[in-house]
Amino acid sequence: MGFKLLSKLLVYLTASIMAIASPLAFSVDSSGEYPTVSEIPVGEVRLYQIADGVWSHIATQSFDGAVYPSNGLIVRDGDELLLIDTAWGAKNTAALLAEIEKQIGLPVTRAVSTHFHDDRVGGVDVLRAAGVATYASPSTRRLAEVEGNEIPTHSLEGLSSSGDAVRFGPVELFYPGAAHSTDNLIVYVPSASVLYGGCAIYELSRTSAGNVADADLAEWPTSIERIQQHYPEAQFVIPGHGLPGGLDLLKHTTNVVKAHTNRSVVE
């Protein structure tokens, strides 16, 4: 069995187990497998329904001669939608809004960016022009300005110390501490036991640490421990890039980060 097929099978099995364990909360999309990078042309966006009122959005972007996937989250909030992270750029984010209108038909009224990198804030200006209120932590807003990236308009308070959590509509926002970046936030959907790890969490097929220019490698494993301790009931975990899975993604990420750190020390 090929690795790609095995990865998709694991996603399907995880979703099936969740649907059985929580039949009222989960209505997993039966329309197909989780979209992969090879299936999404740059400039297009796919939506994948995880649970009743919960979707991931998947886009792709060219970077350094390669094409990478990027995940975000959409959560229903009454007759409105909360968006977590842009679709990595203005063109993708405009396509995301169009796809949401086509498939869901509810307005996106608020959006949260989970850290300051372009795959999370690139497209904020498109959201703002569409009347979406954009939010991020003060740290993310400051770092985005320093980096020359787009800056969300509103500040999220109460997320300055490791372990801080605040309720934001249908989700809980959690600051686990520094990891992929010093400002990275985690998003949890309690009604569906869905954990969105953003770039602080890796997919299972990833074996290298990737972009760690703004990471705190020493603190990252401790931050992941905080996530595990705060959300032990999480059933569906979405990484910032690639295929979702279960809580095993947290341990896998820790292993990859520690291996990278150990290699760096040896070198």
Rank of each mutant, 00 (worst) to 15 (best):
V112N: 02
R76N: 09
V194A: 12
Y48N: 11
K4G: 03
T222M: 09
Q229H: 05
I100A: 13
A130M: 05
L143D: 04
A133W: 10
A215Y: 14
A15Y: 15
P152I: 11
V37W: 11
I58H: 05
L73Q: 01
H154M: 11
I227T: 05
T140I: 03
V189A: 11
P107Q: 09
S191P: 04
L247N: 05
L73E: 01
G197P: 15
R167S: 06
T253N: 00
V108W: 02
A87K: 00
S31E: 10
D119V: 01
E150D: 14
V75W: 01
T93W: 00
H117S: 00
F116G: 07
Y48H: 11
T86Y: 02
V112F: 04
L10V: 09
A25P: 13
G122K: 15
A178D: 13
E39N: 15
H154W: 13
F236K: 14
K258I: 13
A25H: 12
S181W: 02
T134M: 03
T140C: 03
V37N: 07
A215G: 11
H230K: 06
V108P: 14
D183N: 03
G197W: 01
L159C: 03
R226V: 12
T261Y: 11
H241Y: 02
T182D: 11
G122E: 08
L204M: 13
T254H: 06
Q228D: 06
F174G: 02
G240Q: 01
L96K: 01
Y48S: 06
I84F: 04
I186C: 03
P176C: 01
I40E: 08
G89W: 02
I74N: 01
A66Y: 05
L156G: 02
L24T: 10
S223D: 02
G246R: 07
L6N: 15
N71I: 02
S62P: 05
P35Y: 07
G78P: 03
A218E: 13
H260M: 05
T254A: 13
D164M: 12
G198C: 03
V11H: 08
P35G: 11
L5V: 08
G158D: 15
F26P: 07
H180D: 01
P152C: 03
P170A: 12
A215N: 06
G78T: 13
S113F: 12
S56V: 07
V171H: 00
S38V: 12
D118Y: 15
V171E: 02
Y175K: 04
E225R: 12
S113D: 03
L106S: 09
F236G: 11
A111S: 10
G72R: 00
I100H: 00
A136V: 03
E233Y: 08
G242Y: 02
L156F: 10
S7A: 09
I17E: 04
D119S: 00
S223W: 02
M1V: 04
T207Y: 06
F3Y: 07
D216W: 11
Y231P: 00
I100N: 01
S160H: 10
D29K: 08
S193T: 05
L73K: 00
L143V: 10
A95L: 12
H115G: 00
L9T: 07
T153R: 12
S22Y: 05
D85F: 00
I20L: 14
A111W: 03
M18H: 06
A192V: 09
D248C: 13
L13H: 05
I100G: 01
S62K: 11
N255P: 03
A95R: 09
Q229V: 08
P170L: 14
D85Y: 00
G78M: 08
Y135G: 01
T114Q: 00
V266I: 04
L83T: 15
V121I: 08
P221Y: 09
W88Y: 00
T182Y: 04
V237T: 14
L24H: 15
P152K: 03
S62W: 12
G240C: 00
W220R: 01
A21G: 09
T93H: 03
L96V: 14
T153G: 09
A21E: 07
Y196K: 01
R76H: 07
D183E: 06
A234N: 02
T140F: 03
D119Q: 00
Q103R: 10
D248Q: 12
A218V: 11
R76T: 12
G163M: 15
A19V: 07
